[in-house]
Amino acid sequence: MYIAFDELPPHARLWIYQANRPLTEGEQAELAPLLKAFAADWSSHGRDLHASAVLLHDQFLVLANNESASSASGCSIDKSVNFVRELESRFGVSFFDRTQLAFLKNDKVELVPMQELKNKVAGGEISENTLYFDTLVNNYGDLQANWPREAKSSWLSRYF
C-alpha cells in the first residue's frame, strides 16, 4: 500500500541508497512512477507493506515502510534490493557503492571518496560542521530532523 512520503510516521523504517551521480530531470521523471508502483506493490508474505519511495536531493533513493502496520521480512527486503539493482541497470547508475561519502556544500551534493577523507579534513575542506548525508539513518523522524547532519554528529566524529 502506497503512502505519500511526507505522511510517514516518525518511526517508519528507512533504507537509503546513494547514487554515484545526480539523476537528471528526465531520469527523475521516469523514476517517479516506478518508485510509486514499487511501494504500492511491495509486500511481505502476502501482506501489503505500508510503504513509500522517493528520490531526495536528486541522488538519494529512499525506501520506507511503516513497520507498526506491517513489518518487512527478509524476502521483502530482497525484493527491494532487486528493485534497486534493476534501477541501476535501467539508469546506468550505482546505488551500492559505499566508498563515496556525500556532503552538502554550497547547496550541492559533493561526493568524496572515503580514502580522501583524512586529507580533506586536514586541508580544511571538510570540518566538523560540514553537513553529511548519513545513509545509516534508519527512520523517518531522524531523516526529517537530522538529515543532512553535521559530520561531528555522525560516525565521522572520530575524524575531528
Rank of each mutant, 00 (worst) to 15 (best):
residue 1 M to H: 10
residue 5 F to G: 05
residue 8 L to C: 06
residue 9 P to D: 05
residue 11 H to F: 07
residue 15 W to E: 14
residue 15 W to Y: 13
residue 18 Q to A: 08
residue 18 Q to W: 00
residue 18 Q to L: 04
residue 23 L to F: 12
residue 28 Q to Y: 07
residue 29 A to E: 13
residue 30 E to K: 10
residue 31 L to K: 07
residue 32 A to H: 07
residue 32 A to D: 09
residue 35 L to Y: 02
residue 35 L to P: 02
residue 37 A to K: 08
residue 39 A to N: 03
residue 42 W to G: 00
residue 45 H to R: 14
residue 48 D to K: 13
residue 49 L to P: 00
residue 53 A to W: 03
residue 53 A to C: 14
residue 54 V to L: 12
residue 54 V to R: 07
residue 56 L to N: 06
residue 57 H to Q: 13
residue 58 D to W: 11
residue 60 F to Q: 05
residue 61 L to W: 00
residue 64 A to R: 01
residue 66 N to Y: 00
residue 68 S to H: 09
residue 73 S to W: 13
residue 74 G to Q: 09
residue 75 C to G: 03
residue 79 K to D: 13
residue 80 S to V: 06
residue 84 V to L: 02
residue 87 L to V: 04
residue 88 E to M: 03
residue 91 F to L: 11
residue 91 F to E: 12
residue 93 V to H: 00
residue 95 F to E: 05
residue 96 F to I: 11
residue 99 T to E: 08
residue 102 A to M: 13
residue 103 F to I: 04
residue 106 N to F: 05
residue 110 E to S: 04
residue 110 E to P: 03
residue 111 L to A: 01
residue 113 P to T: 13
residue 113 P to H: 15
residue 115 Q to V: 09
residue 116 E to T: 02
residue 117 L to V: 08
residue 118 K to M: 14
residue 120 K to F: 05
residue 122 A to H: 12
residue 124 G to R: 09
residue 130 T to R: 05
residue 130 T to C: 12
residue 131 L to G: 02
residue 132 Y to P: 00
residue 133 F to S: 10
residue 136 L to Y: 15
residue 136 L to K: 15
residue 139 N to G: 05
residue 142 D to V: 06
residue 146 N to A: 09
residue 147 W to H: 06
residue 149 R to M: 15
residue 149 R to S: 06
residue 154 S to F: 01
residue 156 L to D: 01
residue 156 L to F: 01
residue 158 R to D: 01
